[in-house]
Design a protein around this nucleic acid. Structure first.
Lengths: 149, 149
DNA sequence: TATTGTTATACTCTATAACTATA
DNA sequence: TATAGTTATAGAGTATAACAATA
């Protein structure tokens, strides 16, 4: 259990990550905004899946996911085939064009980090990745169990 | 210098922080959205300042900052006094009502973290805070030096 | 002429709710 | 009746550009 002031500092840091996120987003071509890029990245990492699963991984509502998916499908970066087990669903899968697009995106972000994070060690980046993953897991179920005003 | 795959993982983690940020935002009263909360927090931490300085700290355009400031000023949480050294500027300062509002916000976020981050040590939280601060510093000047498409 | 700040406009991302189709 | 997905609508946050006032 950490001190209260550390929690407030953490809240400030999280809030300020928006600026970092925007830096990354500015790297992207106008045709492929960050929502689209996230869809492609997850399909690459976890393989084909349905929209509901994608929405879970993105941690956004299914309606939002549906729009992002429609966007990338319209560009030919993914294909939607019928789900043999459930007529209501379709299976999403990267196309070769989607893979190519994703490789381009990976190159852009890698270039940015390689330039600005020159003095970070492999371990530094790994530690940050691990802590962020843990943070998301710890806060993962905030969505449903809360006390708003 | 870290490996390429770690950079791509970092990009994914940063992108996914949006969900964590929204969890925090859902704690806030409707009257005080996250932009307003950030203004109050920075004025508390750094003391009175002008809009342009606030925009720098928020890492957001001055036009955006201007709107957030108008919102919190309208609620009486900050006051704007003329800048004796520059007739174009005004000095922003927390009011007692703003301090009270901020204390309430701090209580909410602290409660959330205390509940969900029970198994985090003081050092864990401190390490994450330090790494996030360093990340923002390393990427701090991305805004002006880039190669979009 | 340059800078501080404000406002108008537009775009992205998001959630809620209503709706269709299938289970 | 319940679930997967889509679409319409609304709201927050942001950037760009045009503008006012002062330096």
């Amino acid at each position: 259990m950490a001190e209260r002031s550390q929690y407030e500092e953490l809240a400030r840091q999280i809030s300020a990550m928006g600026a970092v996120k925007r830096s990354l987003a500015r790297l992207l071509p106008a045709e492929c905004p960050s929502g689209s890029a996230a869809v492609l990245a997850l399909l690459d990492r976890y393989g084909e899946m349905r929209i509901s699963r994608l929405a879970e991984l993105l941690a956004v509502d299914m309606s939002v996911t549906s729009r992002h998916v429609a966007h990338v499908a319209g560009r030919g970066w993914i294909e939607r085939s019928p789900d043999p087990d459930d007529g209501r669903s379709r299976i999403l899968r990267l196309t070769p064009a989607g893979v190519a697009r994703l490789e381009d995106l990976g190159r852009r972000t890698t270039d940015l980090f390689a330039h600005h994070l020159k003095d970070w060690s492999d371990d530094d980046v790994g530690r940050l990745n691990a802590l962020l993953a843990r943070l998301r897991e710890s806060l993962g179920d905030c969505r449903n169990a809360r006390t708003p005003t």
